[in-house]
């Protein structure tokens, strides 16, 4: 087990290396940050001075080499927008993003698991049709549209929730629903199909024929065995959480990592983009590792060696 974890942790290094390279190449070709930093009226000379000062005139390989050397010491360079270290800027944003992602995930789980189980049990009925239809709808609604609509209806027309910003628990509701909906939509369908698989198993039929109450069969026999795929699904949703939070955070001005990232891309603020992508990559890898470890706890049949 220890060996397994060490191996998995070591695997992170080459993955991160590849990520830094891809991000660096993309940002290198994405364009000139200096053009964004100075007003339209600035002269060519001003631009040239600034480019030189930022080391943007060095050849590609020198810039990449400097970059690797720096990040090995945790130095992602200075944000050209904020003139401060990039990594702390990114890390400062994590609590806000965790808060939103966590609650959104909770919303998604609370919606999708009961609905998925319910619709699997009512297979091919009107209820099933509504639930699966609803999940298609949920998936089809773009995040930014849903966000703007929720603001319009629940914050502007009926003033129940605040429009934007972060502060109290009430501020969390609309962004969490926005982000949670698309995740819930996908998860509901997956929980449903996974539940259907389990319900077709022999031991379920045996339990039923032994006279175990139906509710108990579903909840304690079928659902427990559905958990493994459900956990896999939940972790897979992490990528949706990341991409969804970029949009959701922009719509609700939620001061998290997504908002920082999208602004950094727009401003061609390479250091911040790299640090943000780096941190997101580490998070995804770590969550995947934790998922694999949770399997062991849930299913004694799974062993890593």
């Amino acid at each position: 087990m220890k060996k397994y974890i060490t191996k998995r942790l070591l695997e992170i290094i080459p993955v991160l290396f590849i990520i830094t390279f891809v991000v660096f190449v993309l940002m290198y070709h994405a364009g000139d940050p200096v053009a964004m930093m100075l007003p339209d009226e600035a002269s060519q000379e001003d631009r040239e001075n600034m480019r030189e000062a930022l080391g943007l005139n060095d050849p590609f390989i020198v810039q990449y080499g400097n970059f690797l050397k720096d990040i090995s010491t945790g130095n992602f360079g200075e944000s050209i927008r904020y003139n401060t270290q990039a990594l702390p800027l990114v890390i400062e944003r994590l609590p806000a993003s965790f808060e939103l992602a966590g609650v959104a995930m909770l919303v998604a789980i609370l919606i999708s698991i009961p609905l998925g189980i319910w619709s699997a049990n009512k297979r091919n009925t009107v209820t099933d049709l509504f639930i699966t239809g609803g999940s298609v709808l949920g998936k089809a609604m773009p995040n930014f549209w849903l966000g703007i609509m929720l603001i319009l209806i629940l914050a502007v027309n009926v003033q129940i929730f605040p429009v934007s910003g972060r502060g109290t628990l009430v501020h969390l509701v609309l962004p969490a629903i926005t982000l949670g909906t698309s995740i819930a939509a996908e998860m509901t369908r997956l929980v449903r199909s996974s539940m259907l698989d389990t319900l077709g198993q022999d031991y379920i039929r045996t339990a039923s024929s032994k006279g175990v109450p139906y509710f108990k069969v579903v909840v304690s026999h079928a659902f427990r065995n559905t958990l493994i795929p459900v956990i896999t699904i939940t972790t897979l949703q992490l990528s949706i959480v990341v991409s969804g939070s970029i949009i959701t955070e922009s719509v609700f001005q939620w001061p998290g990592l997504g908002l920082l990232l999208v602004q950094a891309v727009n401003a061609r603020d390479m250091a911040v983009v790299q640090a943000a992508v780096f941190i997101i990559a580490i998070l995804v890898i770590v969550v995947n590792l934790i998922t694999d470890l949770i399997y062991v706890l849930i299913d004694p049949r799974i062993k890593y060696s």
Binding site: I151, P162, V163, S164, V251, Q253
Partner: peptide, 18 residues
């Protein structure tokens, strides 16, 4: 001084008195 990048959100805040 709040920063709200998204135009419709900014208007939403004004309309609700935020």
């Amino acid at each position: 001084i709040r920063a709200i990048n998204e135009g419709s959100t900014r208007v939403g805040e004004l309309l609700t008195g935020g």
